[in-house]
Amino acid sequence: MANSIVVNNLCVKRDGNPIILDLSFEIRKGSIAGILGPSGSGKTTIFRAIVGVQEITSGKITVLGKPAGSKDLRNRIGYLTQSASIYADLTVSENLRYFSKILGTSEISVDEIIDLVDLGKNIKQLASTLSGGERARLALATALLGKPDVIILDEPTVGLDPLLRIELWKVFRLLGEQGKTLLLSSHSMDEADLCDSLVLLREGKILAQGSPAQLKSETGETQMESVFISLVKKP
């Protein structure tokens, strides 16, 4: 199976208003794919549809060969929500241990994840007292627990300092090399360059898709920023 995620003609309407319009794309197994677009373009709605918590109007989504939301997928998808869905009144370690118990993963893997996101010195701290960056890393850690095959990350590097961002991208790369499929969203155009494939989104429609190199050569631009602008301006 070459594709981990296949989205066919996805439409989502909320209260009659179209949010996603006839969207189709595929994401190759073991790749890092990015969905880019301004806020309100439908990125989070697509992610929610892929993890199976979004009511969709029409279309079909297949994840790891199974319909999105299937029971079999529940311990195979890691999902980082945009606003950290963690328990503010629990410590870092209590949060991670709870999610790992639900997933049925071992204590060792919790320690590995804590090292990976560099929260070793915060394990006894209440999540509500963490800084923005630390909270984002804790949320990321909960998404990586249990070694899921597909990892959906809604703006994983927002509010993180550049050094940590580089470190996290190394982690993403490593996960990709292990055969994991990553789908992430970002506002940052320099992160777009780090993805294997991109879906550029605007007002619920696909503006363009392809690898960063393809998109650059199609538009004749050298920077992702200008690629996006030239695609938006294209009649």
Binding site: R74, N75, Y79, T81, S83, S85, I102, L103, G104
Partner: peptide, 13 residues
Amino acid sequence: TTGTLERLLILPL
């Protein structure tokens, strides 16, 4: 409201 319920129901719980 904090999204933890939705997060949990995606998992095997």
